[in-house]
Amino acid sequence: MNKLHKLASLALISTVIVGCSSSPSEPEKTPTPTEPTTPPISESDRYQAERYDIKEDLAPKEPMSVEHIDEIVPQYEPYSLGGTKNYTVRGQRYQIIKDPKGFKEKGQASWYGKKFHGHLTSIGEVYDMYSMSAAHKELPLPSYVKVTNTDNGKSTIVRVNDRGPFHPGRIIDLSYAAATKLDVIHTGTANVEIEVITPEKPQSEHQQKTLPKYQIQVASSPHKDRVETLAQDLSQKLSVPSFVGSDQEIHRVLLGPFDDYNLTQNALEQVKLLGYSSAFIRKN
């Protein structure tokens, strides 16, 4: 491979969109008669192989208890710019659903965990396997979805902020926490039905003030000392109250509470500017 070809390959790798199961990318280049007849490893596969420290996905060493997993309360969020763009994976074009209100779908759910923990999702947020999140191929990001495991009747709500799963028959990839909540961890996959929840945008100051108080969850970790340090640091930098919410082995950095939704949104934007792109708003 000559120098020009190497530079072109590196440029292509840098444009790959990040995803949970397979990164959205442009179709592979068709070999010309002067190139080797043996199909090369795709740039997408090479990128994935180099990007993750763990080759095969797995759960944390210690099982997670479902009792302390918080339910997400859907909040109005504008869609991200990248979360509304059509894209291509493995030669297949995916069209984003423009109006997902009332959208329902049945199929199989899978889950993803430690291999992807701490890496970026498709819209640039940090994947946290202990958060109630998920990946979907065609919903605008972020979206809120009610997921029901039709094998056992259990249901929960997740925030969709990633792309995938790119496997036949699978319609949603659950975070480790969400999969634990629905008892999908041991089975690996489960039959599910999903339904999009579309929160209404607050229209007036009066409506915003009548809503419950809000908190911002910044991060979660099993290391309490690190979480406490981060909570103090953010409180000083942003001049907002902070505290640590602990449930068994998991500790969360929480900011607030806030009475006004707009103020909460402003604080969330500041938090994300500091690098905590997976932070989200939740009700008290």
Rank of each mutant, 00 (worst) to 15 (best):
Q48D: 09
F258D: 01
K154L: 09
H186N: 08
T210H: 14
S80A: 07
F280D: 01
I41F: 09
D99C: 05
Y79F: 02
T15N: 14
V18I: 14
S22W: 14
R51Y: 13
Q208R: 15
I97E: 00
P33V: 10
S9F: 13
F258C: 05
Y261N: 11
L238T: 05
I172D: 00
V271R: 00
K137Q: 10
P222H: 08
G256P: 03
G164T: 02
A135N: 01
D45W: 04
S25H: 15
T187K: 14
P168S: 14
G19D: 04
A8H: 13
E56P: 00
V158G: 01
L12I: 14
T156A: 09
Y87R: 04
R93N: 11
P222S: 05
V240W: 03
L234M: 06
V145S: 01
V158M: 05
Y144R: 01
S221P: 03
A279F: 08
H68K: 05
T38G: 07
I69E: 05
G275R: 06
N284D: 09
R282S: 08
K106E: 10
V240A: 09
A231N: 04
E205A: 15
T264F: 03
A11Q: 13
F103P: 00
Q92W: 06
A177M: 06
Y94Q: 01
Y127F: 12
Q75T: 11
Y127I: 02
T187Q: 14
S246D: 01
I197T: 04
Q248P: 01
K283L: 11
S278W: 02
T32A: 14
V253R: 03
H206Q: 12
H223L: 07
Y130R: 04
P199F: 14
E26V: 15
G82L: 09
P140C: 03
V147T: 06
S175I: 11
G118H: 04
